[in-house]
């Protein structure tokens, strides 16, 4: 059973997160290992396995990037654990400039932090829109490349958050 089937959802990129959460909670109750406390060892083990699969499925489908990656894997394009490097000079140059900007950012300069956060969000939103378009048009290779780029953006986001916490 794949993650979508587990939640009885159609396979696709669009997922209603509130609906997903409701389905998750319902399934969580029916599968909870405590309900099988009086059952056989086999039933108990099965409940634990199902719960772990359920959690995995929920966390994957809830996250837009993980969901995109999972959807591609269902289509036969595997991105997890890939060792392939990205060689898009223009994108990488922009990444370098981002890293330099973050390195030079003064953590006490709140307006500069805000400006960087807003710029980052804008670029991320543009890539996210590209990703949705590519996935819906079944342009899997384009989608895969966009996921790779979004991973760099997510990393930048984390570094920016770390700066904000200083």
């Amino acid at each position: 059973m794949n993650h979508y089937e587990l939640f009885d959802l159609p396979v696709g990129y669009a997922v209603d997160l509130a609906d997903l959460q409701q389905r998750y909670r319902k399934l969580q109750q029916t599968m909870h290992p405590d309900r099988f406390a009086a059952g056989s060892e086999r039933d108990k083990l099965r409940a634990v396995q199902l719960t772990s699969q359920l959690n995995d499925a929920y966390h994957t489908l809830r996250d837009p990037l993980a969901r995109a990656e999972y959807l591609l894997s269902l289509r036969g394009v595997e991105l997890r654990h890939e060792q392939q490097t990205l060689q898009d000079p223009e994108f990488l140059m922009a990444q370098m400039e981002w890293r330099e900007r973050l390195a030079e950012l003064d953590a006490s300069d709140l307006s500069a932090l805000d400006a960087a956060g807003a710029d980052l969000q804008r670029e991320q939103a543009a890539l996210q829109a590209e990703l949705e378009q590519a996935l819906n048009a079944s342009e899997d290779e384009v989608a895969a490349d966009t996921i790779r780029k979004l991973k760099f953006m997510r990393k930048l986001g984390r570094e920016l958050e770390a700066l904000e916490e200083l």
Binding site: Q84, L86, Q87, P89, M96, K151, R154
Partner: peptide, 13 residues
């Protein structure tokens, strides 16, 4: 030469 590793977000020039 510019390369990046999507797995970790590292960039190298």
């Amino acid at each position: 030469g510019m390369v990046g590793a999507p797995a970790c977000g590292d960039v190298m020039k």
